[in-house]
Computed example of a mutant assay.
Amino acid sequence: MRKRSIKNTRVNTEVQRELSSIIRGGLKDPRVAPWTSVVAAEVAPDLKTCKAYISVLGDEKAQKDTLEGLQSAEGYIRRELAYTLNMRNTPEITFVLDQSIEYGVNMSKKIDEVTKGMKTEGDEDAE
């Protein structure tokens, strides 16, 4: 299976959907933050490995604790994934912290601050 094939894209989205439902509903680990989301999942073409990109809303300690909790529950998550998905191989999951949402929020705030400053300067010039 090629890396960018339609089948691989479907497998990626299905694994992402199931991972998010398992993390949201099945994990009882207190280290995993309640605002944890699966941003993307990349399953290798041979279906042996998977990189799950995780976004955690919170400070660095919450992000670190969530990653540790997910890594310790990897066996449970993999078993649940095998139960819900009918795949020949259940991939080994590697959790990677994704900072893109946090980066986007910070950039949006900075843009708002700059445009707010421009609006007040423009209003003064009009008077």
Rank of each mutant, 00 (worst) to 15 (best):
K3P: 00
I6Q: 12
N8I: 06
N8M: 05
T9Q: 15
T9S: 14
T9A: 15
T9K: 15
T9P: 02
R10S: 10
V11E: 01
V11C: 02
N12D: 12
T13Y: 09
E14K: 06
V15L: 06
V15H: 01
Q16E: 11
S21L: 04
I22D: 02
I23T: 02
R31F: 07
P34V: 03
P34M: 01
V38L: 01
V39A: 11
A40K: 08
A40R: 13
A41S: 09
V43W: 00
D46M: 07
Y53N: 02
L57F: 08
D59M: 13
D59L: 13
E60L: 10
K61W: 06
A62V: 06
T66K: 07
T66Q: 05
Q71Y: 09
S72C: 10
A73S: 14
A73L: 09
E74Y: 05
G75P: 14
G75S: 07
N86L: 08
N86H: 15
M87V: 10
T90W: 04
T90H: 04
I93R: 00
T94M: 06
V96C: 08
Q99H: 14
Y103A: 09
Y103K: 13
G104D: 14
T115R: 05
G117E: 10
M118H: 11
E121S: 11
G122M: 13
A126L: 15
